[in-house]
Write a protein that binds this DNA or RNA. Structure first.
Length: 445
RNA sequence: CGGAGCGUAGCGCAGCCUGGUAGCGCACCUGCUUCGGGAGCAGGGGGUCGGAGGUUCGAAUCCUCUCGCUCCGACCA
């Protein structure tokens, strides 16, 4: 993409309403525009990152054997009357009446609807296990939306639902979700710690929240800091192998890590003092096992191998997709702007032409752009007629992890610069070597 | 939902107390000079002062109502 033809409305000054760094940078980098309290338009740059995160979530869910579908944002109230949550959910649920006076609601989550789909089509244990998920906009009419996309009223969420014949199979689904989530967050450059949590309105007895450590987090967290060193890495996981999946979960949940809701000071104090940490975290996902709570109330029954009709075992599992943008920025930025991890960056690399209109510079940049494209990498080429300082400031603000800089001085010696946004370190090399370097970096992502 | 604020140009703000028909910086447009970390000079365009009503010869300014947004708290993915 040529920047001169793109739509990237960056702001030099900080918008007054933005209190935390991720919100400020998202506004300044032209990623979002607020339309109402807690409701945002996603401008091209923000939309690209949102899509990257969505892609990672999809890939990892499919890898775990889960099946994507898409349910609507608007739901009939009757479905929620069956589960009893139409009255329980309260003011947070946005209720809508259509022209025929039918009662509708903008879905805050989809347990009822997915259970309805399931009961309409599945009758036998032979069709289990089944895990369905979608990534769809949700609406929760928060009392007080704030912090930009971190706590919007409308937000994009991945929510998945498992259907299993018994408790063991359902707990395996729970574990599968935990592992697939850990893998998703790692690919986004995040360390998200699974913490034992309280269940809230979804219900159920087994639940973990995933928290990204950040000063601006809304939850107080207590943990053994050795959990932050745990990495899933590239290990090969067979999601059908209950023992292997359970072992990974055990590895990531044995060390103490809890939110204030489940914190136990007595247990916490047994951690060696040098590892005992209290901090704040941003919740970016939660998994629940809730058994037959919805299947019983909504009549989602299957016939088991003994010919008995039994309520199906369920769990639900969510990732806050739009919130993740905020969380990633909170975890990865400096005083100049955002620093995107390679896994989610809107563009893999930026090209800065230091002297637009200079034939050598223009030709070099165009060549780099084409060579990167040939390797499947879409660069953001700053071909505006701006001074070097302005171009650098823009690149730093929007946070592309790598930058190739081409100017007359270097080109006279046959070199361009490759700069890491994270370290600020630059290295001079030929155009060919620069393209290869970037391609090599992204081959791993 | 309790408490506190703020709505004046795309963004950040001044003007309001003490009424006289709107200003600054950034951004934008034109020209010249500049050109490796948000350039300089000169010129220019853009605002029913959130909305409605009222007081007044006259309202951004005073009064009433209303809408929107933000912050603190409680609540929550």
């Amino acid at each position: 993409m040529r920047l001169s033809r793109y739509f990237l409305p960056v702001l030099k000054e900080n918008p007054a309403e933005a209190q935390i760094v991720s919100h400020r940078y998202m506004l300044r980098a032209g990623m979002i525009k607020q339309q109402a309290a807690g409701i945002y338009s996603w401008l091209p740059l923000g939309y690209r990152v949102l899509k990257r995160i969505e892609d990672i979530v999809h890939q990892e869910q499919v890898r775990a054997g889960h099946i994507p579908l898409l349910m609507p944002t608007l739901q009939p109230a009757d479905l929620w009357r069956e589960s009893g949550r139409y009255d329980d959910y309260g003011q947070e649920m946005l209720r809508i009446t259509d022209r025929q006076k039918r009662e509708m609601l903008y879905g805050p989550t989809n347990e009822e609807m997915i259970t309805d789909i399931f009961r309409s089509h599945v009758n036998s244990y032979k069709d289990l296990p089944l895990t369905l998920y979608h990534i769809q906009w949700k609406f929760r009419d928060e009392m007080r939306p704030r912090f930009g996309v971190m706590r919007g009223r409308e937000f994009l969420m991945k929510d998945g639902y498992n259907f299993d014949i018994d408790r063991d199979a359902a707990l395996h689904a729970y574990n599968r979700h935990m592992v697939s989530y850990l893998r998703s967050y790692e690919r986004m450059g995040l360390t998200a710690i699974p913490m034992r949590a309280a269940s809230g309105p979804i219900g159920g007895d087994n639940t973990h929240e995933f928290l990204v450590l950040a000063q601006t987090g809304e939850s107080e967290v207590f943990y053994d800091d050795r959990v932050t060193a745990l990495k899933l890495g590239q290990r090969d996981i067979d999601y059908d192998d209950r023992t292997q999946v359970a072992k990974v979960c055990e590895e990531f949940t044995t060390l103490y890590a809890r939110t204030d809701e489940t914190h136990d000071a007595g247990v916490f104090d047994t951690i060696p003092e040098e590892h005992r940490k209290v901090g704040r975290g941003i919740e970016v996902g939660q998994i629940f096992y809730f058994g037959t709570k919805y299947s019983e109330s909504m009549g989602a029954l299957v016939v088991n191998d003994k010919g008995e009709r039994v309520p199906v075992e369920m769990g639900s599992h969510g990732i806050g997709v739009s919130r993740l943008l905020g969380a990633i920025i909170e975890a990865s930025h400096d005083e100049k702007g955002i620093i995107w991890p390679e896994g989610v960056t809107p563009f893999p690399v930026g090209i800065v032409n230091l002297k637009q209109g200079d034939s050598a510079c223009d030709a070099a940049c165009a060549g780099i752009y084409k060579a990167l494209a040939a390797k499947g990498l879409e660069a953001l080429y700053d071909d505006r007629d701006e001074r070097a300082g302005a171009k650098f400031a823009t690149m730093d603000l929007i946070g592309l992890p790598w930058r190739i800089t081409a100017g007359p001085r270097g080109l006279a010696n046959g070199v361009v610069e490759v700069t890491s946004r994270r370290t600020g370190e630059s290295e001079e090399m030929s155009v060919e070597a620069a393209v290869d370097r970037i391609a090599q970096i992204y081959a791993a992502h």
